[in-house]
Design a protein around this nucleic acid. Sequence first.
DNA 1: AAGGATGCCAACCGCTGCGGG
DNA 2: GCCCGCAGCGGTTGGCATCCT
Length: 196
Amino acid sequence: MDKRISNSQEAEVRKGPWTMEEDLILINYITNHGEGVWNNVARSAGLNRTGKSCRLRWLNYLRPDVRRGNITPEEQHLIMELHARWGNRWSKIARQLPGRTDNEIKNFWRTRIQKKLKHGEPFGVQNVMLTDEASTSTTQVNTTTDEGAQPGAYTHMHDEQQTANPDGMISEFSTESSDNFWTVDDFWSMPSLNGD
DNA sequence: AAGGATGCCAACCGCTGCGGG
DNA sequence: GCCCGCAGCGGTTGGCATCCT
């Protein structure tokens, strides 16, 4: 993604995956100063990112209250209901699902539900939910539930925090945090974030 | 075991609406 | 009323992990 960015460009505005250092800087800055104007956040924090990029990263990934991982059947139900009512108003739908981001819901819809609709399966909350449960459960068994399916943001990062209960709820973040396995949650347990 | 296909998600892009000067 | 900058939104893309043959 960012591979075609020249060095000179990169010195101005970085694109592509966020690094651990950038995340730390952003979290630290927002913790101490609040969100404010995103372009200022990017500049003041010393990040060579656009305000847009910072905002997106914060909202979709770094926010302490963001829930990631399995969408519960209840949430699926709600998403389908709200989508039927509002259409692709992802941000609006996301507001009804605390901790979920519009991006996540959008991705969920596209990868799970839209796929089913394409295959001609009848559009029904019950139907999609049940079949989706079945399909995801089988695939997730093969992929050791949920973990490891995605690299998170960093090539060296594990998304171990996506530890799900059988009912799909995020139960607890993994405490595993060795040199190469750390999580966003680790950020929030860092003492330096609580003051500067 | 290797290579291709598929699934999933993070991040970017472009557009729109809004508020301030 | 117009212009500009910003925030927010939805669509799209790129890349990694896993599955399948």
